[in-house]
Structures are given as C-alpha cells and as structure tokens.
Design a protein around this nucleic acid. Sequence first.
DNA 1: TATTGTTATACTCTATAACTATA
DNA 2: TATAGTTATAGAGTATAACAATA
Lengths: 159, 159
Amino acid sequence: MATRTGATGKQRAARAEPSKKPDYAREAWALLTRLFKAEKGKHLAALELTMPQAQLLLNLDPDRPVPMNTLADTLGCDASNVTGLVDRLESRRLIERRADPADRRVKMIAVTGSGAEFRTKLLARWYEPPAGIAALPDRDKKILLQILRRAAEGATDQL
Amino acid sequence: MATRTGATGKQRAARAEPSKKPDYAREAWALLTRLFKAEKGKHLAALELTMPQAQLLLNLDPDRPVPMNTLADTLGCDASNVTGLVDRLESRRLIERRADPADRRVKMIAVTGSGAEFRTKLLARWYEPPAGIAALPDRDKKILLQILRRAAEGATDQL
DNA sequence: TATTGTTATACTCTATAACTATA
DNA sequence: TATAGTTATAGAGTATAACAATA
C-alpha cells in the first residue's frame, strides 16, 4: 500500500519516475529477513534438528503431554505428518508416546527427561537475539521492543 | 515466557536464583520470530512457491543469467539440488537453461519474460513489512530502521 | 458413524556418490 | 585430471486417501 505517486513532502529531488520515497519499514523488514535465515539455520544445525522438529519440540509442555492430533493442529499440518515427526524425535529419546487412559485411540506425546533438558537448550537458543542486536545499548533494545509491541497491538492478530 | 519468580516491583529484589532481568532484545526477537513464520508462509502459499524456489528466484538477476554452479554457491546447497529446483521452475516457464558459448559444460539460468514479471511480484511481497509494522507512524518506522542498521553495523557480518 | 493414529503413495528438498560431457 | 551438470539413491517434510482400532 501507499504508493504516493504525488511526490511532495520531504523528498526534495529524486522525483525521477517511480518517485520512490524511502520505505523505512520495508528496509527494516528486509534486514530482518536476512538475519532470520542465518540465525535459525545456525541453531538448527547446532542441535541437529529440522525446522518442523524444532517447532514440535517448542510447542510441547514438558509438564503436560498432549494428544498427537492437538499437535497437528498446533503445527498446522496433517496428522499423518506428525506420525513421522514423532517417530524421529522419539527415536532420539527426546519425546515418547503414552497411552491415554480416557481414550484408547489417543496417544499422548510427552517430553522425556533428556528431552526436557534438550528442549531447554533449544528454547534458550531459539529466541536469542542476533549478536548485533544483543550488542545494542539497552536504551535501543527497549525502544525496539516498545515499537514492536506497538506493532503487535496495531495488527489484529498479527503477532 | 518470563516466569519472573521473584515477584517484586520493577526489579530491585527478585534475586531468587536465576534472577531474571527483563531482556528487551530477546522479547523483541521472539516477537519477530513468530511474525516471520506467518508472513513468509503467506507469501509462499500465495505464489505457490516453496522456500528454496523463492530463494532461487530472488537470487536471480533478470538481466544477467548465471551458471548453475554459481547458483548452488549462492543458495548454499549442492549442485545436484539445483538441478531439481531449476527443473521445477523451468517447467513453470519462469526460468530457462541457456548454453554458455564460452564453455559448453555450463548452463546459464535466465529469467524468462513471464518469470521476470512473476519475480517482480515476489520481490514486492517478500520484503513487505507485516501489517502491524506498516501501520506504525513514520517516526517509529524510521527509528526501527535506524536501530536495526546500528545492529547491522555492530555485527561484523551479521546482516 | 465419527475420530485417532498409521500406512501407502506421491512430491519436494537435501546430500553423497557415480556418471557424462566437456575443459 | 578437473569441472559442470545430471542421475541414482536415500532420508526428511508434506498432503491425500485408505485403513484399523476405538468411541
């Protein structure tokens, strides 16, 4: 949105043809886009996880097993898909299938002891800000968060 | 997140054990992490592209074909992988293989006419900031970018 | 009948190794 | 011999459809 072909306010010259005005938000987002790719990739490689496996693990509560179909909903994928993801994570002893006494069709996914430990490491890394951001003065970090929170409020259910 | 076991005013006490102090950068990054997943997913679905296909397309210059092996380097994947990606994109007539007169082993990947058009749409979407950020007052956007640029400078080659 | 999880099947992405055709 | 691209193969992610067990 906001093409604003008029060309008026700030930008003095630079009214060649498309009359591009500086798009701060777009540039910021482009910057972040590149960062994300690199950061998440590093974490996944370090922990030998794939993105879907990490998502599954992050969406588990070590204290409360969840049915596989709930997991499929949470991850936004088909149930048949969850079977495979759980298979692989279970083979690493990070999670395990448990019976549900209330409904014998259901299998509850629980985080194992070592899985909980592993998940803690994952969680610590996953939201760790990139070096450049972590190195910002506290004041900047605070402003950054304030602005993003404002953005989150503004969008109905964006964040 | 943020268990804040201490339970006090601002901070002051709260020196239970982990003594968690508010981590602005971490919270900001967590916020952004969720946003990215949703945003990029939307774009890819809308254009019927997979992430690697989008990356390939974005890394092409419509005005200058590149050898496949260069593409493999750029994408950071194996050459055998590029073969398949190019196959699928070529079957959609978005790109095409061309001979290199200088070296008959090489195949140059060029963007087709409709491919260039398609890529323009992709590019427009790809770095489009989320609604919440786009809706921020211009002043906030500007500050956001300034801070991120500072972060980019700070990190040797982070961004 | 409806639901939960699995299996069968079919794509895509990914890497490694082997192969072709060039250099 | 070395390099560019392909093919063969294998494992992971994904969805759809069919199926078994259980509600």
